[in-house]
Amino acid sequence: MITIENLSKEFLQGQQSTEVLKGVNLNIKEGEFVAIMGPSGSGKSTLLQLLGGLDVPTNGTIQIDQKYLNGMTEKERTIFRRKKLGFVFQNYQLLSTLTVEENIAFPLHADGKLTNEKNRMIQELIESVGLDGLNRKRVNLLSGGQQQRVAIARALVNNPAVLLADEPTGNLDRAKAEEILSLFLKFHHENKQTIIMVTHDIFAAGFADRIVLFRDGVVDRVISRKDGDYAKYLASFMA
């Protein structure tokens, strides 16, 4: 479903170049829930940006659903992103002056007028993320947990094949984080969505099928519960 080959990314700051990704190779199966963990600056968020087509790699390729992101024009990438990918960010990135339903409907405007069917889908999403009755409330009046629910509904409104989440529970306490992760799990289970979640939290990563550890711009190890020494490795990795 997703094939990442020899992916690298360099950022230029004046004369100085920093290589954030240094040849990442990774395969993610359709319908898989993958957590990416690693220290700050290890390149995990950059990988997510490249996967989402929000930036382009310096070298290497990304294939999603048998399509190379590299070969696309900016416009093609935007359309691909809108149809195939959903994003959830740590700081929600909602339009603060709009209401819950306006935020969720936002990605649909690019495809033209809201039809009755689309409006019904928005209502269903609002219910499934547990925000019934808050349709017309402005999002800046909601709590952090509620805002993240709006962001998840917005990310899912196009029924994307892949959901990319960057520290989705980073700003939430344990109980609120649990609610958000339960929603991910529900959508992953019901819609077979592929989820790639960057997190620093082992309690969130535990929801995933696999944990990919990043260090210094490369995949350090892919953790599976079947490996006998995984816990020891994780303990020293997190030290």
Partner: peptide, 24 residues
């Protein structure tokens, strides 16, 4: 400390897996 941490992490991942199954 690291060994104790590994023991806890193993518990966290095993119990979280079980928890997700119970949730579903």
């Amino acid at each position: 400390l690291e060994q104790q941490k590994a023991m806890i992490i193993e518990g966290v991942l095993e119990l979280t897996k079980l928890k997700t199954e119970l949730l579903l």
